[in-house]
Structure formats: structure tokens, C-alpha cells
């Protein structure tokens, strides 16, 4: 793997609101390699969805990107600077072309009064010059591939006639029919029951291999992350606080927030240890703490230093980065 498929550098996103400029994402950098599943973990307000939407330029108009933020996409010898795409015609290369997106609540993402089939062919017709008959053929093939029984009959039905799991499968079929290089999956299994969630995760893993595409998998569920992704990024209040291979991060979490998240998670293999909550609440983005964003809830805060200076990234093993003062040089005593 020489070149990453997409490279995000120093991404900062602010929103212009009535209450002033609100920072949603602050200096976030990560790469996604071709064919890789990257997990993006964070709780509400962590900026994970906003980051993903920035890749497709889908954020609303009151959003301001940082001046040195850069998103580069590498498509077969063709390098695209995503922020330079101004016209909506140019944006088609990424929107629904090289990148597709699936959402958390599939009922809300299908138009209720247009049949699922028509919505699937519509995007194929926009992104290629194939005939309607061919588009229909491909759509039915994709519906079959994601495991929907009677795809030809389902093709003519509406979203309300599908069950929750079926809808999410149809959504995946639709996102993949244009053969994207990157699929952004924003909490794709959160609204599903566990038995259905297991089916959808298996399906997505198979499809990655088959189509050799990359997935940016956004979720708050560490269990889903452990079973699905290759590498992961942890975000808190718009800041990337830890990233690395999924085994490194989950087995040897470096940041107190990542550790806290894992301790707060009820685990089935250990019913005796009481759940340890992270103290306090997630601060509102309107009053982001200065210094380290986690200092208001951190159990091992150093006080003044954590409150005044933003920690730099420390490497902990192979490509495992942690943003914490305690990990910085000379403080490795735990």
C-alpha cells in the first residue's frame, strides 16, 4: 500500500451559529488505505458525523473549514483536492461517485413515495450513461447480492414495505451499485436488533473483500468496532485523541478517555466488576475546555498543565498515536 485512498490533514470545522462560531472538529488528520475498514468512534458531540460529511462536502452552508485543512483523494493517478471542488458538477466525482454513504436510520433516508427500485436506478443513471434496462438489471443483481429474497419483486416496492434489516440491506445495495472506492457508513447498525446487526456486519465485511473498497465505519459501539474494523480513530469533542490498529488500541488503550469508555462498557465475560462511569457530562461544544478537551472529566488530570496546553501526539508502539500529557516524554511512569 503506497498511497492512501483518502488523506485528511488538519481538518478543522466550525459552524457559524447564532451563539457564535462553534468548533465542531479541531485539527483532525487520518488516512484511509484502499480496501481498509477504518473505525471512527466517539460519543454524541464528538464530531464524527461532521468529519465524515466533510469528505463528501455535505455539511450545511454555515460551516467554515479551516484554511489549512486539506482532504486529498487518490483515484488511479488522479489526485483530487476535495475542497477545490466548487461546482456541483465537479462534486459528482466524489458524491455518489468515488464515495457513497449509508445512514443510521434507513427509513429516513429512502424517499417514502418513490419505489426503492426507482431510487436505485436514478443514481446509476446520474453517475453513468447506461440504459434504464441495464440500470434495473444491476440494481436487482445488487439486491440479490445483499441477501434480499425475491429481488425482482422487491425492486418495485416502497421502503415502508421493507423491514428494518431489509431496508439497511437495500441501502447498502444502493450505495454499492455505483462501485464506490470508499463507503461511509454512519452508525449503520445502531437502529438494528443484535441478531440483524450481526448479519449486516458480516455482509459488509464480505463486500469489502469482493469489491475491494474502503469503509469509514462510524459508531459509538466498541464491540462493533472490535469485530469489524482494521484500524480505529477515537474522537472526543471534535479532537482526535487516539488512533491505531484496532488490536493495539483496544488491548492497550493509551488515552484515559479510551480506557474510561472500555471500563464503562458492560461486558458479558465479567459480571462481577461494577461498571465504572466516567465522571461528569460531555461539555457542550459552546464551552470547549481549554488545553486538553478531556481535562474536565479526566481521572488522572495533571491540573494546570492539562488545562492550559493542548497535548501533542505521542507514539505508543507501531502507528499508535495518543494525545495525552501523561504519555509525553519523561512521564511514562504510570
Amino acid at each position: 500500500m503506497s498511497k492512501p485512498l483518502i488523506s485528511v490533514k488538519d481538518l478543522s470545522i466550525k459552524f457559524n451559529t447564532d451563539e457564535g462560531l462553534v468548533t465542531a472538529v479541531d485539527n483532525v488528520s487520518f488516512d484511509i488505505a484502499p480496501g481498509e475498514i477504518l473505525g471512527l468512534v466517539g460519543e454524541s458531540g464528538s464530531g464524527k458525523s461532521v468529519t465524515a460529511k466533510a469528505l463528501m462536502l455535505l455539511n450545511p452552508e454555515n460551516c467554515v473549514y479551516g484554511s489549512d485543512s486539506k482532504i486529498t483523494m487518490n483515484l488511479e493517478d488522479n489526485e483530487i483536492d476535495v475542497f477545490s471542488l466548487a461546482k456541483s458538477r465537479d462534486k459528482k466525482v466524489i458524491r455518489g461517485g468515488a464515495i457513497s454513504m449509508i445512514f443510521q436510520e434507513p427509513m429516513a433516508s429512502f424517499a417514502p413515495a418513490i419505489s426503492v427500485g426507482d431510487q436505485m436506478t436514478e443514481q446509476l443513471l446520474i453517475h453513468s450513461d447506461m440504459s434504464l434496462a441495464r440500470a434495473k438489471e444491476i440494481s436487482i443483481e445488487m439486491l440479490e447480492r445483499v441477501g434480499i429474497p425475491d429481488p425482482a419483486q422487491r425492486f418495485g416496492q416502497y421502503a415502508f414495505e421493507f423491514s428494518g434489516g431489509m431496508r439497511q440491506r437495500a441501502m447498502i445495495a444502493m450505495a454499492l451499485s455505483t462501485k464506490p472506492k470508499l463507503l461511509i457508513a454512519d452508525e449503520p447498525t445502531t437502529a438494528l436488533d443484535v441478531t440483524i446487526q450481526a448479519q449486516v456486519i458480516d455482509l459488509m465485511k464480505d463486500l469489502v473483500k469482493e469489491f475491494h473498497m474502503a469503509i469509514l465505519f462510524i459508531t459509538h459501539d466498541l464491540g462493533v468496532i472490535a469485530q469489524t474494523v482494521d484500524r480505529m480513530v477515537v474522537m472526543y469533542l471534535g479532537t482526535l485523541i487516539e488512533k491505531g490498529a484496532v488490536r493495539d488500541v483496544l488491548r492497550n488503550p493509551g488515552h484515559p478517555y479510551t480506557k474510561g469508555l472500555m471500563d464503562a462498557l458492560p461486558r458479558l465475560d465479567d459480571l462481577d466488576t461494577p461498571l465504572k462511569a466516567i465522571a461528569g457530562d460531555i461539555p457542550s461544544p459552546l464551552d470547549r475546555p481549554s488545553g486538553c478537551v478531556f481535562n474536565t472529566r479526566c481521572p488522572v488530570s495533571l491540573g494546570n498543565e492539562c488545562e492550559s496546553r493542548i497535548p501533542s501526539y505521542t507514539t505508543q508502539g507501531d502507528e499508535h498515536l495518543v494525545a495525552c500529557h501523561l504519555m509525553e516524554e519523561g512521564r511514562n511512569s504510570k
Binding site: E43, S44, H220, L222, G260, L261, D263, A264, L265, P266, P274, L275, K276, A277, I278, D281, I282, R297
Partner: peptide, 11 residues
């Protein structure tokens, strides 16, 4: 609720 808050409410 978020995971970090969930544990608190359960307790």
C-alpha cells in the same frame, strides 16, 4: 445515552 453516561445512570 452515551456509553460513558449510561454506566452512571445504571449505577
Amino acid at each position: 445515552l452515551d456509553v460513558s453516561i449510561q454506566a452512571d445512570v445504571l449505577n
